[in-house]
Design a protein around this nucleic acid. Structure first.
Lengths: 206, 206
DNA sequence: GTCTATATGGGGATAGAC
DNA sequence: GTCTATCCCCATATAGAC
């Protein structure tokens, strides 16, 4: 018997609505960005009034933070559920593919780092930072394993590899491929993986 | 005798002030982003009043657009001034290094593409688009030459390589290396070039 | 052309009725 | 808890005096 089933009907609908708000916010953040997204947009998208929105989330910043926290939780869950038989490099490739496909379906990249504003907001949330740190630590271990296995360059510091890896999830190249290049989701994912791991020169030079 | 010297003293100071406005805007755009930058910020930074600002630029969008146009002009000038003895790959490396160093000194990345808002503004400016297209076309030729010379992968479409290349100039990884990794400008440039051309796996795998 | 002072509008947040 | 109606700040943009 789950905790959820203990809730009254009213509480259930409240929770469901809350998730609808989070989903709508995710879509809006992905399309318009934080600064251009208005609380009216969110309320309108969900079909509720603005004051109702504020019963769930005390501010716009709070709402956006919750969305990002949920995203990091999803990423951590994905990492946790990966087959233990995978190599470290495969684990990194799979997670990146997961993030890119999510984004191509209208979702958010973790780290909407492009925006200094959003970054500032997120760094004020301890709950967000805890998860970001946890993810960073786990990925750091995977990168180190990959280095030992000869699957990643050893002449790049681990944190540099990680910063670059995160950045690929919010790479504007994805938008351009989709918007101007009309590439399929599969093609975009394939190209992004090549670019991330092998670079634009890659084997051509060796 | 330059055109400039024909201007009256008043016109000269007007032009000089205009450049000061553009410089201040560049710095502010780089640090705060378009949405958070206010016209009061710009006026205050330059030491003039807001109405004076509007004598130079008819709107905030116009101001930002001019800054971006100037940046593209600088890039085109840099490309034009490159030694003809350089290989195509070297030309790409040098331009990327030029852009990264400019950014590390507080300048703007061409394409502040992170922001959907700015992208929308820029696509409304014919003068901007003309320059962007010119740069895109020139770089496309260089990439094709590099492919023929075996300096770049041939299994990636040229436009994909270009989209990825542009994205490196505004890569958040640069911010993270600077902010959290405390890497020197030289180290950041070196790592970014490696990541761009050789990827994070690169030769480790071959 | 430069300023002080102000108009205008949008959007985050809330009061108060039901 | 939900809504309608409203507050109010802030930032873009301008009016009008000098």
């Amino acid at each position: 018997m789950s905790i959820f089933s203990k809730l009254s009907f009213k509480d259930k609908t409240f929770k469901l609505r809350e998730q609808a708000v989070l989903d709508a916010t995710t879509t809006l953040l992905a399309s318009k960005g934080f600064d251009l997204m208005t609380m009216d947009d969110v309320a309108g998208e969900v079909g509720i009034s603005k004051p109702s929105l504020y019963k769930h989330f005390k501010s716009k910043e709070d709402l956006a933070t919750e969305v990002m926290i949920q995203l990091l939780d999803d990423a951590l869950t994905y990492l946790d559920g990966q087959e233990p038989t995978l190599t470290s490099r495969e684990r990194l490739e799979n997670l990146l593919e997961w993030a890119l496909r999510k984004r191509l379906e209208g979702g958010l990249p973790f780290l909407p780092s492009g925006s200094p504003h959003v970054r500032e907001i997120l760094t004020k949330s301890l709950r967000y930072l805890t998860r970001a740190y946890k993810l960073h630590k786990q990925l750091g271990q995977i990168v180190d394993s990959a280095k030992e296995a000869g699957e990643l360059r050893t002449d790049l510091p681990t944190d540099v590899i990680l910063f670059s890896y995160y950045s690929r999830t919010c790479d504007p190249a994805v938008d351009y491929m989709q918007l101007y290049g009309h590439y399929s989701a599969d093609a975009i994912v394939r190209h992004m993986l090549t670019i991330t791991f092998e670079g634009i020169a890659g084997s051509a030079r060796s």
